[in-house]
Design a binder for these strands. Structure first.
Lengths: 190, 190, 190, 190
DNA sequence: AATGAATGAGAATTCATTCAT
DNA sequence: AATGAATGAATTCTCATTCAT
């Protein structure tokens, strides 16, 4: 695979894949993705050597974007609960603003085509949050658990919260707040 | 009367589908399922008119089995926390004993081929648990939330817990207990 | 193949086949025919050893019915033109009253599954009309042609006439009469 | 630019379809057609989106070829009977030279998979012959009938004639001539 | 590098026919 | 004889990937 010439085209393919996968599931044909990206069928394969690589790159890309959203305006100096709330709200907002991306990550996460390597890379990208968790545990603010477990509970509860925000838009704000408080009670000491 | 349609064969097909889908994902060919069930390719279609129906029936079947597991020895007379713990443990045990089934339900739940009808039927099967939640809220034991939200949080946290039990078998017992306590703090008042 | 018990059932199958083939073409599944006839799938094969036999029997049956219609009230003593007109009108009326049967015979006639034997048997059933033609030629009323050719022209023109009667029902009567006159000019001497 | 779609390959597929359908009927598998055309099974579907489209295109193609044959050396200035004889002979010759094509058009014409649209397009292609008929009626040369009816009678009689030419090759020339004279008496005034 | 036609191994069904009941 | 479940070959169409242009 030669070095692809255009980063734009790569991004267009990833964006198109998100759209198409959100609409038709992960089995959607690569031809449809290429078309949605405005490139020829074969061109997709100069950017991704096969469909599995596209899937893995997309997974990494979306996870990385989510991490970026969480780090934007991250209040590094605030107390732990403030920082946790920031992460929670950033997650929720990203998911609400990008429902397609959220849906696709969910499908990718349970599909066998994402390699252990991709999952590890993605987990690594969130390690600074783990560090925050460890620090908090040391301070006694959080209950003693593997940091990854706390992170996973945040993700699980945030996903559940977003599902209900989507189902009952009128109560969205309530869910967002109540969800965080529930999370915090679940993991914090006091 | 010709040979009657066999409930055994139907169950064999459903069991085979679970195995095959757990190994190869939901796109696994129907031919492989039929073979695993020990019937001819065409026979699958006398029991399920098409693959989507197989998927939906399997979803319903697995959800129903999970509900059955939760109701076994359900301590109807015990206090709310005892009952919630029973449900939690039943869920966890079912998932740990039946990792294939758990994996397949997870894939079915995010795949577009499960109809809204199937999801509604399945949700209805768990309505008695919602009743328990409502009753508890009335008593002030649980915080005020839509009962379905509490149920969804239980599911989300239990799934997360099972993931970690699988990853760190040595700490499985610890996760099971700590997971429930976290859940209870998240939703209970005190 | 044992002797089938019920002539009624055989007729029901033939009638059902006519309906089903008219609606869905000659590839329609035997299962649909059996269902339309109110018998089980397998029962069809006690009356017809396979689908080709059903096709051939149906062809013969319909041709024979048509011949019967032509012979009903056949004016044996009338002059040739009167007799020819009788045949023409009987054909047209049969086709108009039984559009399904007409459609199915047309499909069977061009489909390779009707054996030469069936075609010969069917042709034989119309031999008395050929005799009339020969007699007329001897009298000099008809132009000298193979009798089967005259018969085939009658059929071809009658079919064309029925097509147009169907397309323009308001002019049906006109087509029926004009069609016969055209046929008569085509084959008669004067 | 990638390899352009090849008109040759399209024609090869159409020709192969004609052969295969003539031999085995219209249900012959697309795989056999592709093989006969020397292309891969999937390639057929880059030229025709599905089998029905192949059928319809073939119908149109063959009808168009027949029209072309009728127009070749068409004696536009000759009198009506000469022109009608030209059409008759062109039709017969085309049918005799191309028995496969004739057989396939016959099957397509009675099969439900040819759309009303295709039939209309094909009918339109023969409209100039209708014009000739109308002109002749105005002159009083032909009896007053819908032009399409006259055309349909020509077709019906020519088909019948070809059937008999095939059955009795020794008398072929006689049938060809006698057939036309019969047709002309059927439709002309004098 | 980009294109899109070509490929052929599947995939989900269908269906005539058989045969256990 | 009647039934309809079981069979598995056959069919249409799809799609990731290759490669000539």
């Amino acid at each position: 695979m030669a070095r692809p010439r255009s980063e734009d085209k790569r991004n267009a393919l990833l964006a198109a894949a998100t759209q198409v996968f959100a609409d038709d599931g992960i089995n959607a044909p690569t031809a449809r993705i290429a078309k949605a990206a405005g490139v020829a069928e074969g061109t997709l394969f100069t950017y991704f050597s096969n469909k599995d690589e596209l899937l893995n790159q997309l997974y990494l890309d979306l996870k990385s974007e989510l991490r970026g959203a969480m780090l934007t305006s991250y209040p590094r100096a605030a107390d732990v609960k403030q920082r946790a709330r920031h992460v929670w709200l950033a997650y929720i907002d990203w998911g609400v603003v990008n429902p397609h991306k959220r849906k696709v990550v969910a499908q990718l996460a349970v599909c066998d085509r994402i390699t252990a390597g991709s999952k590890a890379v993605s987990a690594g990208a969130f390690s600074e949050f783990n560090a925050m968790v460890e620090e908090s545990m040391a301070k006694g603010v959080l209950r003693d658990q593997p940091p990854a477990f706390v992170g996973a509970i945040l993700v699980a509860m945030a996903e559940t919260t977003m599902d209900f925000m989507g189902k009952e838009p009128a109560a969205a704000e309530r869910f967002r707040t109540a969800g965080f408080e529930a999370f915090w009670r679940a993991v914090a000491t006091s």
